[in-house]
């Protein structure tokens, strides 16, 4: 049975900073299986975020391609790609990036609304997810009324709401204190263990690295180590 969720083939990304060419990614090929809990690590400028952006269809490679569920997303047009992301990829950002004018409940519900799901389903799933991340009591608070850790847990619930094939998290614990980091990691590990949710992180945080089942080390845009 094919459990491959993501396959990258010779991914390269070249940026131009003025007249200087920067090789952010250099022929990166790898596969991610369903249910993985992967940390992508490396020093600043090693290409972690670029790699995640390309896997998530937020950026396009200079060469090579990304295949998700038999779809070469590197060839999709912008509008198709947005739709593909909506149904297949969940995102957790370093700065939480919730919609500030919506409550926790509305933030989680919003993505399902974009998917066009019915109200009853949305309400139930929103309720379940917020309970799961331990925010059942704070559903009507807006992001400014939540702590950083609570906001990031709403972001996790939002990422899960669309039932994506995998979740990409770009340094999700970077702005969190130890307690919030532990709570967040516990939630994500539980989701991974119990529901088989696939998580791919980029991180510097040793606490995240310690919990990861697979660690990919990037240096100068190349995979130098892939430990399982």
């Amino acid at each position: 049975m094919n459990n491959i969720v993501i396959k990258t083939n010779n991914l390269s990304k070249i940026y131009h900073q003025g007249e200087i060419e920067v090789n952010a990614l250099n022929n990166v090929s790898c596969e991610f299986q369903k249910g993985e809990f992967t940390a992508i690590v490396g020093p600043s400028g090693s290409g972690k975020t670029t790699f995640l952006n390309i896997i998530g269809g937020l950026d396009s490679p200079t060469s090579g391609y990304v295949q998700i569920a038999d779809v070469n997303i590197s060839k999709l047009k912008s509008s198709k790609l947005i739709d593909f992301r909506l149904h297949n990829i969940g995102f957790i950002f370093q700065a939480y990036n919730l919609i500030p004018v919506l409550t926790a409940k509305e933030n989680v519900e919003f993505i399902m609304l974009l998917q066009g799901t019915d109200k009853e389903y949305r309400n139930k799933r929103t309720h379940d997810l917020l309970e799961e991340v331990g925010l059942g009591e704070l559903v009507n608070r807006r992001p400014t009324q939540l702590s950083g850790g609570q906001q990031q847990r709403v972001a996790v619930a939002r990422a899960l709401a669309s039932k994506p094939r995998f979740i990409l998290a770009d340094e999700p614990t970077a702005n969190l204190d130890s307690k919030s980091t532990t709570q967040l990691l516990d939630i994500m590990a539980k989701l991974n263990e119990e529901e088989g949710t696939t998580f791919i992180f980029s991180t510097h945080d040793q606490r995240v690295i310690d919990r990861a089942k697979r660690i990919i080390v990037l240096e100068d845009g190349k995979i130098v180590e892939d430990k399982k």
Binding site: G56, D83, L86, H87, F91, N97, I99, P100, I111, L114
Partner: peptide, 16 residues
């Protein structure tokens, strides 16, 4: 910008 970028990232159509 950041918020609009996030909306696009999570799948909000440009038309919306």
């Amino acid at each position: 910008k950041k918020e609009l970028g996030m909306l696009m990232a999570i799948g909000m159509k440009k038309r919306s």
